[in-house]
Design a protein around this nucleic acid. Sequence first.
DNA 1: ATCACCGTTAACAAATTTGTTAAACAATTG
DNA 2: CAATTGTTTAACAAATTTGTTAACGGTGAT
Lengths: 203, 203
Amino acid sequence: MGDLVETEQLIKKTARDIFFQKGRLKATTQEIADEAGVNRALIHYYFRSREQLLQVVFEEAVAETRQKIAAIFESDLPFKKKISQYLDVFIDRNFRYPYMQNFIITEINQNPDKEDDYLNKKRENLCRTIFPQLNEEIKKGNMAPVKPEHFIANLMSMCSYPLVAKPILQRMFALDDDGYKTFLQERKQVIYKTLFNEAPPKE
Amino acid sequence: MGDLVETEQLIKKTARDIFFQKGRLKATTQEIADEAGVNRALIHYYFRSREQLLQVVFEEAVAETRQKIAAIFESDLPFKKKISQYLDVFIDRNFRYPYMQNFIITEINQNPDKEDDYLNKKRENLCRTIFPQLNEEIKKGNMAPVKPEHFIANLMSMCSYPLVAKPILQRMFALDDDGYKTFLQERKQVIYKTLFNEAPPKE
DNA sequence: ATCACCGTTAACAAATTTGTTAAACAATTG
DNA sequence: CAATTGTTTAACAAATTTGTTAACGGTGAT
């Protein structure tokens, strides 16, 4: 049935949901095809191999987040305001695709040497952009002194881990899905307060 | 060659190193056998299946950490001292097996419904033990008020994430293996300071 | 010495999964 | 309508991996 160009998009969307929403990181091409309701050979027709499909889906998902984050830190907002916005964007984004963080980690752990340009550039830039801003903020006396590496590590840890380890924390705190969603929303405030030792400004 | 009971131990040790030190979570039985220098069939002879080997190796590794942590929080040290010790034990332990955190997360994500008794009990107990101690500490005015869930989330996040995401942070901060080791050691102080907004007491 | 047992081995069977191919089919264009 | 193009399908081939089995070898007990 001539689905126009839709089949390719359908496969991508299905794969993205299977991988990054449902967390079925080991899903076979057959499972993806079944869930998309298409013949398995079409996956190879459009993407050559399972790995290339994964690559495409992943890069597209990353690109979307990347530019949002970059825009924040390249703006001329006050530093603390940038962190607030980062928390908003990052947590909301990764709540939609809870297993993406997990995927990144697993993949990089599996091929630590593989040059993932998209990710590396993102991270290098992030550091180059943030480190000076952070040191400036400390010099101004707006926050306690801290090595930039540790500040970033703290920030990323407190954002990412509760997303990566959702099943662990959710069970540990006996929260249902709605409860965990609320918990993640609260974290925006909590992380800000933990990093700066002061409540975030009201909107 | 009659290796006494040693073969079984050798397989376990090899598997543990492959899985939890080297992070080769997808290692086949053949790879494990080769690295142990034994015939692959012996893995099935001793452990029936690849999965059961994994299970055994994992449980043994977890049990070791579990009791150390439990002992700390069941002691009658001051609360902040407990956190200090937790940081020491947890970070050192997981530095030896950097991929264990990662493994736990991947496994639980893959079978979120599977009743992993060993892990669940550990976590439930941890919560039951820590929450009252934490609230007590707040009531005494020794630390800023915070919901226990968020405090635990912060603590676990800042400990675990840099271990789980080692390849990411290591590259991001351009650290070699020694540099990253130092970084992790520094984190013990940094996390304490971030949680309590005061430097940890000297030893 | 022989028997039984345990550890070990190679060879095999079975299942799973990926990727290819050739043919069928649909849609569009001349 | 025929021809061409692009899409879809079923069937096949190949590789990978797990688990089983039957035979082999040494060790100790009777």
